[in-house]
Amino acid sequence: MGARTVVSTALAHSPMRLLTPRNHGHAAWVYTSLFGDGLVDGDHLSLEMRVAAGATALLSSRGNTRIYRSPQGCRSVLSAQVEKGALLVLVPDPTTCYAGARFEQHQDIHLAPGASLILMDLVTTGRRATGERWDFAHFSSALRVSREGRALFDERWLLDPAQGALSERLGRFDALGTVLLVGPASAAAREALAERLGTLPVTPGAPLVCSASPIGSDGLVLRAAATSPELLMHTATDWLSFLPALLGDDPWAHGN
């Protein structure tokens, strides 16, 4: 059996806990889980992680991150250091903001030379079964990826009804997402995905709209808007269908 990455230290405080399930691959897996099934007014999550040189780590979640009505707002901050030759796979389930929710998310990821990042970031509309469609009060998401102090990717999403009714602005779409692939670990997958998405036709009224854009010499960003959260999740996991072979186990086959 080859080298295997292990979790050397894990510490969490309420409302978050960290689960480190065993798997059949060589990577260390960490899942976040929230007490109470979501974030309520005033909750502030702060997560720091380091992936040591040559190691492989997967960070995911147990179910959607639900943001409940929160007049004062909720916040989540992730800071990750990925050292030389290491790989971080960051693939949480979607963020879902309910009516009246206010949420800010910041992700700051630092890559050393030769380090790799595979990231999935999805946001979906609220409780569709009760008629909610983008009824939250505020959502912002900032993602910054740097290598040796230089920004590779720096982006912020802002969805706020102050700029106009969200359900009208987003039209038929109920889910938005980004998949980011950087570094040598995903080189073959990036090439295949860029070619595949580059040949897709543009169809008016399609349930799924997606695009692919290069980032420097060793990165690719994939974006999608879908008419349902299920379609978006299916699309994103299909794009990442190379992960089981890369990790030695399938992170979506265990039902979280």
Results as ranks from 00 to 15, higher is better:
residue 116 S to R: 03
residue 117 L to A: 10
residue 117 L to Y: 01
residue 118 I to H: 01
residue 118 I to R: 03
residue 119 L to G: 06
residue 119 L to W: 01
residue 120 M to H: 04
residue 120 M to N: 10
residue 121 D to Q: 08
residue 123 V to W: 03
residue 124 T to L: 06
residue 125 T to F: 05
residue 125 T to Y: 04
residue 125 T to G: 12
residue 126 G to R: 03
residue 126 G to V: 12
residue 126 G to N: 10
residue 126 G to I: 12
residue 127 R to V: 12
residue 127 R to H: 12
residue 128 R to M: 15
residue 129 A to S: 14
residue 129 A to F: 13
residue 129 A to N: 10
residue 130 T to G: 11
residue 132 E to Q: 07
residue 132 E to L: 13
residue 132 E to C: 09
residue 133 R to C: 14
residue 133 R to G: 00
residue 134 W to E: 06
residue 134 W to F: 12
residue 134 W to K: 01
residue 134 W to D: 02
residue 135 D to L: 11
residue 135 D to A: 15
residue 136 F to V: 08
residue 137 A to E: 09
residue 137 A to S: 15
residue 138 H to N: 07
residue 139 F to D: 00
residue 139 F to E: 00
residue 139 F to V: 02
residue 140 S to F: 02
residue 141 S to K: 04
residue 142 A to K: 10
residue 142 A to C: 13
residue 143 L to Y: 03
residue 143 L to D: 08
residue 143 L to Q: 11
residue 144 R to F: 00
residue 144 R to T: 10
residue 145 V to E: 04
residue 146 S to N: 02
residue 146 S to F: 08
residue 146 S to Y: 00
residue 147 R to M: 10
residue 149 G to Q: 10
residue 149 G to A: 09
residue 150 R to V: 15
residue 150 R to S: 14
residue 151 A to Y: 00
residue 152 L to Q: 07
residue 152 L to M: 12
residue 155 E to D: 13
residue 155 E to W: 06
residue 156 R to V: 12
residue 157 W to Y: 05
residue 157 W to I: 11
residue 157 W to A: 12
residue 157 W to E: 11
residue 158 L to K: 10
residue 158 L to A: 04
residue 158 L to D: 02
residue 160 D to L: 14
residue 160 D to R: 01
residue 160 D to H: 07
residue 161 P to L: 13
residue 161 P to K: 04
residue 161 P to V: 12
residue 161 P to H: 01
residue 162 A to K: 11
residue 162 A to T: 14
residue 164 G to V: 07
residue 164 G to P: 05
residue 165 A to C: 07
residue 165 A to P: 08
residue 165 A to F: 14
residue 165 A to G: 11
residue 166 L to T: 11
residue 167 S to T: 15
residue 167 S to M: 13
residue 167 S to E: 15
residue 170 L to F: 12
residue 171 G to E: 03
residue 171 G to C: 09
residue 172 R to P: 15
residue 173 F to A: 12
residue 173 F to V: 07
residue 173 F to T: 09
residue 173 F to W: 12
residue 173 F to R: 05
residue 174 D to A: 15
residue 175 A to T: 04
residue 175 A to I: 08
residue 176 L to H: 06
residue 177 G to H: 05
residue 177 G to M: 04
residue 177 G to V: 03
residue 178 T to E: 01
residue 179 V to E: 03
residue 179 V to T: 14
residue 179 V to C: 13
residue 180 L to T: 05
residue 181 L to H: 02
residue 182 V to D: 02
residue 184 P to V: 02
residue 185 A to L: 01
residue 185 A to S: 11
residue 185 A to Y: 04
residue 186 S to G: 14
residue 187 A to D: 09
residue 187 A to V: 13
residue 188 A to K: 09
residue 188 A to N: 09
residue 189 A to W: 05
residue 189 A to Q: 09
residue 190 R to K: 11
residue 191 E to F: 00
residue 191 E to S: 15
residue 192 A to M: 11
residue 193 L to I: 09
residue 194 A to T: 10
